[in-house]
Amino acid sequence: MQDIMFYMFAALTIASAGVMVFSRSVIYSAVGLLFTFFGVAGIYVLLAADFVAVAQVMIYVGGILVLLLFGVMLSQRVTGVNMRTETLQTVPAAIVAVGVLFILFRVISKTEWLVKAKTTFEPTTAKLGTLLMTDYLIPFEIVSVLLLGALIGAAFIARKG
């Protein structure tokens, strides 16, 4: 059951990512990305990371993707034929990409991973909250400051332009 679920989500993710990458329309890409995020969220669920999956859906789909679409809308005429993204250097890029993929596959398959599989599904939210407030307190605070800085900086840059 879990295996079928994995292949389904994997297929959804890769297919929609493929649409996103190879589509010539920015809107199509955005839609492809939306489904990719959902697929990845499904994968997280299969990996027993319920909080991360929810955060993925909320932040990526509800935040980042909307942000990206705003960018598209603000910078391009929605109704025009210009809503296209052109590509360049596709052939060398494909060669490099395939090369990298080959390297990754080779590394992954050759490595002897110290696998210690957990089989239980437990809620992770409380644990994550404890970890963030204990072991990862400083990164947590830094990230909040980073978010504040990004907020102000983004607003400043956008307004100035």
């Binding site: 991360v52 955060a55 993925q56 932040i59 990526y60 935040g63 980042i64 942000l67 990206l68 705003f70 960018g71 603000l74 910078s75 990230v143 980073l146 978010l147 800085g149 990004a150 907020l151 900086g153 983004a154 607003a155 400043f156 840059i157 956008a158 332009g161």
Partner: peptide, 16 residues
């Protein structure tokens, strides 16, 4: 994820 959100915000500002 958080960092990506921040990066997206800044990047979008730059794009604009």
């Amino acid at each position: 994820i958080v960092t990506a959100a921040a990066a997206a915000a800044v990047a979008l500002a730059i794009v604009l």
